[in-house]
Simulated scan of single mutants.
Amino acid sequence: MIDFDMDALSLDPDSRSGGELKTEQPEDADEDPLGTKLSLAQEFHAIGDTEGARALVKEVIAESSGAMRVRAERFLAELH
């Protein structure tokens, strides 16, 4: 049997209880639109939409520089 704590659930989206779900995001995803776009591309790839992921990564590469561009180029290489 799976042990599930119903008390940890909340319908309040602003609730910060210990039972909330956490998703992994790069540190800069909340502050940087390009980081968010790259994270979205990774999610597209995870659900099998490789073409959608590739299109987003190419946008990130065209609009970025430095470390963000390097991360995007590496991810694009993984998509091939």
Rank of each mutant, 00 (worst) to 15 (best):
M1C: 09
M1I: 06
M1D: 13
F4D: 04
F4R: 06
F4G: 01
S10H: 12
P13F: 01
D14W: 02
S15F: 13
S15K: 10
R16G: 14
S17M: 00
G18K: 11
G18H: 06
G18W: 09
G19F: 04
L21W: 10
L21Y: 10
E24K: 05
E24T: 08
A29P: 10
A29G: 02
A29C: 08
E31D: 15
E31I: 07
E31R: 13
P33T: 06
P33E: 14
L34M: 11
S39T: 08
S39C: 03
Q42W: 03
F44E: 13
H45D: 12
H45V: 05
A46V: 00
I47Y: 01
D49A: 04
D49F: 00
D49H: 03
T50V: 14
T50L: 04
G52R: 07
G52M: 05
A53N: 06
A53H: 03
V57P: 10
V57K: 04
V60M: 06
A62F: 02
A62R: 03
E63W: 02
E63A: 15
S64N: 07
G66W: 00
G66Q: 01
M68Q: 14
E73D: 12
F75H: 04
A77L: 03
E78Q: 12
E78F: 00
E78S: 15
L79V: 04
L79Q: 04
